[in-house]
Design a protein around this nucleic acid. Sequence first.
DNA 1: GGATTTTATATCGCGCACGATTTGTTATCG
DNA 2: CGATAACAAATCGTGCGCGATATAAAATCC
Lengths: 145, 145
Amino acid sequence: MQDQLKLDNFICFAVYTASHALNRVYKPLLDTLGLTYPQYLAMVSLWEQDGQTVGGLGEKLFLESSTLTPLLKRLETAGYVRRERSREDERVVVIRLSEEGIRLKEKAIGIPGCIAAASGRYAVDLTRLQAEIVALREALNKSVV
Amino acid sequence: MQDQLKLDNFICFAVYTASHALNRVYKPLLDTLGLTYPQYLAMVSLWEQDGQTVGGLGEKLFLESSTLTPLLKRLETAGYVRRERSREDERVVVIRLSEEGIRLKEKAIGIPGCIAAASGRYAVDLTRLQAEIVALREALNKSVV
DNA sequence: GGATTTTATATCGCGCACGATTTGTTATCG
DNA sequence: CGATAACAAATCGTGCGCGATATAAAATCC
């Protein structure tokens, strides 16, 4: 039997659909902040560490400049960040939170709890699951070289 | 400490980045078939069960018609499927594999093994991990109503 | 049986996400 | 020091993915 070609046995399919499911849970919460999900991740990274470069953010979020540049421009238009060319190295663009961007953190603080409530109704330990998914990601990233 | 707002503690971020990592591993393999990753999933579903409707496929893949219709049109242009309105119910569109679409399965049969090789280098049991991610997805889907 | 509602698919606009390429800047090499 | 290579962002084209809406067919309700 070739049930290796059945969708339900694909870990990739599980991850793919879980990712969409998470997005759907986040969407109504993020709508109140005026953020999309990738924009939210960028803001979380900036709340952790302000003044990151486009490349630095890309490394943390695993995204290319072709994805981040327009996303960050939209965040700038929304008034949450400023994009400034570094004076020491004119190739580099530094992203800085605006006052409004800093304030937004207060409104975002409750979101992870809402997600935990939505996902935590079943038995599995989310912390361990999270660590295992990260391990999977690392194994995959290594294999791509 | 408010480390609930740290990226590395977000299960959503783990799933999001793992999904991208999987995509990157799949891409070179699927390029040889002329398929994108979502197109591949649709084909796998059709290899399992030919003659599904757009809505039926959407339910299995958790995708809207606004996503599937253009995707299936591209698969039709590629010559892998045919799209035919049902005669009993003219609202319904049935998707059928073409000869070439059926043949493609032989070329695709080896792909899951390649992915397992790329992801299976670490200790965790992939089958259990897969089941847990599915459980997470189900919990999330339930909470959205 | 004609009006209304429901259902299935399609269309449109927007925001990712990425590969390929371009632009402009810095570093390196002879 | 001038040519060349390396680097950081940005731009462009393609394909998702979804919400809102449109279209058309079937089902339901007076």
